[in-house]
């Protein structure tokens, strides 16, 4: 029963012996005929819960497509994806909405804050609809922006906006946090700050974090690095020694 599953999953600190995601034979084709684009060509992956995962790869390697599929934003052309044993690829749009609402946080390159809401209101937007969310102020404190809570996005710098976006994504205590190039539009100092926040969240809350980046150096802070090329997984490596965000070379 979906409800039971979600009830279980929303319990914080769930069993980690099961993989957060199990991906088998996933392909994704955009378009038809000779013009069709094969974004994913049979991806198989198992991602344990609680890890920080970095997806590396050139433009068009399929990493964003994979992330969108895992995040419930896009459908597969073939293959199956399981989320803690529940088949994500079989969910209805309404179930996917609930999945995103209760389990998934997103952070994008361009922040996507609501310009009409203040920092704390942007966070409350999410906490209002989830069951065991953090207090908005608490979430902003996590990202070091408690003193900017009453500012509108237009009054915040790029790095600050991105940290509000992260606070918004983590405030609902998601099971998984997906970040698509979260530092892409930021300078190095601000970028490191943002990565620090993501690392903290992963360590303190055990949230599985999936991070897409162009910057190969970022991979040094991950538990697991997945390299993608031409829509397929080229290599998966586990970091024995992880670096702190502060020590990442930019």
């Amino acid at each position: 029963m979906a409800n039971n599953l979600f009830d279980q999953l929303t319990l914080y600190g769930m069993a980690t012996d099961k993989d957060a995601f199990s991906v088998t034979g996933v392909t994704k084709v955009y378009g038809e005929g000779p013009g069709a684009v094969h974004a994913l060509r049979g991806v198989d992956l198992a991602l344990p819960s609680g890890e920080m995962v970095v997806l590396l790869g050139a433009s068009g390697s399929g990493k964003s497509t994979l992330l969108n599929i895992l995040g419930g934003l896009d459908s597969v052309s073939a293959g199956v994806v399981y989320f803690f044993g529940k088949e994500l690829t079989a969910m209805s749009p309404a179930e996917l909405t609930l999945y995103r609402r209760h389990h998934v946080g997103f952070v994008f390159q361009f922040y996507n804050l609501m310009p009409s809401l203040t920092a704390s209101e942007n966070v409350e937007l999410v906490t209002e609809v989830s069951d065991q969310a953090l207090d908005a102020e608490e979430a902003l404190e996590l990202v070091g922006l408690a003193d900017r809570k009453n500012h509108f996005p237009s009054e915040l710098s790029g790095g600050e906006q991105q940290r509000v976006a992260i606070a918004r994504a983590v405030a609902k205590r998601p099971t998984v946090l997906f970040c698509d190039e979260p530092t892409g539009a930021l300078d190095s100092a601000t970028g490191r700050q943002v990565l620090r926040v993501l690392q903290d969240i992963n360590e303190h809350f055990g949230t599985t974090v999936m991070l897409i980046t162009h910057a190969a150096a970022t991979a040094d802070m991950a538990h697991r690095v997945i390299e993608m090329a031409d829509g397929a997984v080229r290599a998966v490596r586990i970091n024995e020694h992880r670096l702190d965000a502060e020590n990442i070379e930019w």
Binding site: L113, P115, S116, N122, E128, F152, S154, E155
Partner: peptide
């Protein structure tokens, strides 16, 4: 990157009204 639309200068909603409204 595009600046978010500026809402800081528009007429603020009163605090008591805000408390009663969801996001």
């Amino acid at each position: 990157p595009p600046a978010p639309a500026d809402y800081s200068r528009s007429t603020p909603l009163s605090a008591s009204l805000i408390r009663r409204l969801d996001q």
